[in-house]
Amino acid sequence: MHGPLPLPAADVDALARRTRARRRRETLLTHASLVLGVLVFAFPIYLTLIGSTHDVNTIGRGDVPLLPGGEAIANYAQAWSAGGGRYMGVPAAGMLANSLVMALLITLGKIAISLASAYAVVFFRFPFRMLAFWLIFITLMLPVEVRIIPTFQVMVDLQLTNSMAGLTVPLIASATATLLFRQFFLTIPDEYVEAAKIDGAGPLRFFKDVVLPLSVTNIAALFVILFIYGWNQYLWPLLIVNDRSLETIVVGLTKMIGGGDAQNEWNVIMATAVLALLPPVAVVVLMQRWFVKGLTETEK
C-alpha cells in the first residue's frame, strides 16, 4: 500500500517505474504460462509423431529420438495396410473405416431422432407428452458405462453382438441432443407457426421449410461434439465386438500395445496412434467455432 496522494515527485517516479516493471513482468509471465501449457499438451503428440518416423529398433532400444527419422513412409504404409506384426496385424485402414462408420452412424442417428422427438414434444400436444419427455430426460443421468453389463446381456439376447448395428444403435438415444433442440425450438416465435398455418403448411412442411433451416448451426455444433463422442467410444466396442473385421481404431490401438512389452513394434503403434488421433482433432480444429458453441450449449 502507498500513502495518500500527493506523493513527493520522486515517489511517483518510483511508483511509475514499479508499475511499468510489474506490467512487463505480468505480460511475460502470461506468455510463459501459456507457452508452457501449450507445450504440455502438444509434447505427447509431438513425441508420438517423431516416434512414428523411426525404425522399430531405435525405439525398442530406448533411444528416444527428438527429431524426425526417415522411416515415416514405411511405418505409415505398414500401419495402414498391414498393422503391427506381433499383433495378428489388423490394418489401420479397416479400423479407421469402422471408426468412421460408427462415429457417423451414431452422430447422424442421434441428431435425427433427437430432432424428431424434440419437434414432437415442442410443437404438439398429445397424451403422455410429458411422460415421454421425462423418460428421455432421465437417461441423461446414466452414462453407458454404469449399465454396461446388463446392456451387454440385452445385446446378446437380441443377437446384436458383433454387428455394426449393435455397435451404434444403443448409443443413439440422446437426452442431451433432445434437450438442446427442445430448448432451441422453444425460442422459435409462435408467429412462425401461425404464418405457416395461414399459408396452409402442415407440420412436416413446417419442419422442412422453417425449423430445419433455422437449426443448421445447432446441428453443426452438435455434429462436432457427437462425432468425437462416437469416434472415442471405448468400453462399448470392446465388449460388443470380438470380430476383428469390426475393430475400431481406438480399441485396436490399445490391443496392439497389450501389456506394453518393450518388444512391441512401437514405431507402427505410434503411426497408428497418429492415425487414430487425426480425424477427431481435425474436426475440432476445423470446426472450432461450432465446437465451442456445441459444447457450452449442450451442457448448460
Binding site: 435425427a112 431422432i113 433427437s114 424428431a116 422427438s117 419437434y119 414432437a120 414434444v121 415442442v122 410443437f123 404438439f124 400436444r125 398429445f126 397424451p127 407428452r129 415421454a132 423418460l135 428421455i136 437417461t139 446414466l142 449399465r147 446388463p150 446392456t151 446381456q153 440385452v154 437380441l158 444403435v169 444403443p170 443413439i172 438415444a173 433432445t178 422453444l186 409462435d190 407457426v193 401461425e194 398455418k197 402442415g202 407440420p203 412436416l204 413446417f206
Partner: peptide, 30 residues
C-alpha cells in the same frame, strides 16, 4: 408453446425411435 399443431399420430411416430431405443437399451437393462 402457445401455438401448436393438431394431431397425436404424427408426434408419436416422431417420438417412437427415441422411445424404443431408450426402452430397449436403457430401461430394460437398468
Amino acid at each position: 408453446k402457445r401455438v401448436i399443431f393438431k394431431g397425436w399420430a404424427l408426434p408419436l411416430a416422431l417420438l417412437l425411435p427415441q422411445l424404443v431405443i431408450t426402452g430397449v437399451f436403457f430401461f430394460w437393462p437398468a
